[in-house]
Write a protein that binds this DNA or RNA. Sequence first.
DNA 1: TATGAATGAGCATTCATTCAT
DNA 2: AATGAATGAATGCTCATTCAT
Lengths: 222, 222, 222, 222
Amino acid sequence: MAVAEPESTRRRRAPRADAIRNQEAIVEAATKVLAEQGTAVDVREIARLSGVGMGTLYRHFPKKEDLVKTVLRQDFTKWAESARLAAIDAEDPWAALTDFFWQALTGYARHRAIVENFALTWSDPDLEGIQQLRLVIERLCDGAKGVLRPGVTTDDLLLLLVSLGHAVQVTDDCRPQMWHRLLHISLDGLRADHREPLPARHSTGTWSPRSRTPSSGCRETR
Amino acid sequence: MAVAEPESTRRRRAPRADAIRNQEAIVEAATKVLAEQGTAVDVREIARLSGVGMGTLYRHFPKKEDLVKTVLRQDFTKWAESARLAAIDAEDPWAALTDFFWQALTGYARHRAIVENFALTWSDPDLEGIQQLRLVIERLCDGAKGVLRPGVTTDDLLLLLVSLGHAVQVTDDCRPQMWHRLLHISLDGLRADHREPLPARHSTGTWSPRSRTPSSGCRETR
Amino acid sequence: MAVAEPESTRRRRAPRADAIRNQEAIVEAATKVLAEQGTAVDVREIARLSGVGMGTLYRHFPKKEDLVKTVLRQDFTKWAESARLAAIDAEDPWAALTDFFWQALTGYARHRAIVENFALTWSDPDLEGIQQLRLVIERLCDGAKGVLRPGVTTDDLLLLLVSLGHAVQVTDDCRPQMWHRLLHISLDGLRADHREPLPARHSTGTWSPRSRTPSSGCRETR
Amino acid sequence: MAVAEPESTRRRRAPRADAIRNQEAIVEAATKVLAEQGTAVDVREIARLSGVGMGTLYRHFPKKEDLVKTVLRQDFTKWAESARLAAIDAEDPWAALTDFFWQALTGYARHRAIVENFALTWSDPDLEGIQQLRLVIERLCDGAKGVLRPGVTTDDLLLLLVSLGHAVQVTDDCRPQMWHRLLHISLDGLRADHREPLPARHSTGTWSPRSRTPSSGCRETR
DNA sequence: TATGAATGAGCATTCATTCAT
DNA sequence: AATGAATGAATGCTCATTCAT
């Protein structure tokens, strides 16, 4: 029943069937190698794996960084979404939080490039990756107000995720489930029955155990 | 002409005075740049900074990796020692643990190469680095038996350290003290008042929140 | 539905309407960018600017060089024509010559591709570009017999044009009018009051100042 | 008689015999290919021709541009010097000027990279190449005050050189001596017997033959 | 036939490692 | 033994030309 095709259709000869296929192949291949080897991979490897020439790859992604960012954005989104879904039908707010972490750490923490870049996404506005997760966490955090220790912020949970994500990666090869225990411990520390306030958020008067002055660290010259 | 070589000859031909000095200079320089820039540094930079030629550097350390390992071994040791000392005159076992973590995270967590390689030291037998810390933690762990949640192992604490170390590094630039809160939370989760057992250590029957089957992670194809 | 194709079909299948339009668009676009950026431009740029696809462009001009030559041929013609017209209503033969140079240097000397390729057109029979100018100059030369120094040939004037064209381009950015003086000087050198004969045209017995043997040049090995 | 070697000698283990040889080989090879093919040559070609690896080439010249500039500087200097020497024992100031141009145009005008870059050296302070020639010309210009048309500047002569250099290059393949005539003409135009003043140096009130407004040039949109 | 996506050789540059001095 | 010059494979990226749709 479609009446005369909208103008745009006439102009933009839709069919980029193969182009789309290629783009997808590139992203797929990139996702794979970035997950496995991190952002240091040779672009040629991605091209080879996706079955396209260098030119094609660079037509779709003019800079390696563009491809990396595209993949990361997508994977962060997938990650956030899968973790969100895992939390959605939990019985109670606490279970939702638990399930979220579980899924998040199970799902993507072994993605080299993601873990590599999680750090950077704190500040890089191009990579809203972390924002996706922030949003999910924020909702969980709000929903868990009563069961969460007072003063715990979304950013605390986000950082916890980053932190545990690294633990997952570290132990992935030889102690694949060891992080379960760490998650357990951390979650327990987050419960409402800990009434002791957390150190100030932007502490200038730095909290330290028994006011010990930190000393003899490395890179003091900085 | 040479008369019977004196005993020393049998060993190795004494003149290692400068050789030792060189080796030390190399390691010192490497320590600095590895801490600052991670293992990606150009070997030339190390040679330049230590004032020796490339040849000398490669005589002492045939592969870049050898040098890196040497430095890491040493820095891990220093790290462990400084953290140990920080804990030694604590009032009670719990304070010792607290102080240990505090010092460890304050002191070396910004050492790029260390954090980069902490992961590897789990499995790499060449790098007993982590063992040094293990030893210290083991003692603290034993001493804190009563105040520590039952079932917490040395390895748990070690992994917690790795995990928090990453958090420190991630936030170092923009939120320098944010990890304090995470440490606080984690330590609280470690206390004896949490009587719930931790998930099994080498869980084959994997613990999971409400027996959820982990799904749709990345790199399943592996 | 198409009724029997009219005669034109035998010739070539009439529909060259758009083909011609395309060809024109391509040449127009190419003219612009070649003038602005020289022959190093990316062919894509030309395609984009002319609104046709790469395929179409390459259908009309199988090699980049073909397109360049077409454009140059055309621009040389336009150039020659505009310079001819500038000379046509001069008061006397000398003024005609002067006006010609003036117009030629003002008009096209900043056309990057033209200046770039002026050299080649001496020898390349495909590019009769220079011939167009030759024709014009020849007429001017003939008309100016009396006022021109004896022995000056059309080719001399042609080469002078090439030479000054380069000067125009060189100084275009920072000393836009500096070439005026050079033109003035050269024209004065062309006047009839210089009676000294010019060096032989195809001098084997090379003219040289005081028979100095040229020495130590570059590329002697060639 | 040399007393104790100066300190610097002790430190800087002089012998870079092969390094010097290599550097020379590189420059020599670069000189050759730059003269023949211009600055577009592949760096590999230079490396191959000089018999060194890429790394060696880049050790001596961290950027291609560095090598190019080094070669150009050297060749400009050689060029200026050879032209200066050619002028030095001329009988009179005018002959000096003539000989200078002769030698300059005979010597290096076929050096592709030099001609390519002559233009740029007007503005690029890194390439004092042109300055060398300027200096020589300046002296000749001063010395020829009486025989040179009044108002002729060093820059006029410099531009004439650039301009004629291009003519030499253009005709090198098919009409190798044609530029002799042009030089003759130009020099005649420079003589003192032309008393008509040259157009203003920084003419705002642009000189033009019969005040013709320049029109219909290319690149008007600029 | 027109389109623009695909190709891949080619280019400047880096860096771990080897080797002549 | 020490030096630092030499090596060359590898990397990110470009662009004239071809080809599937």
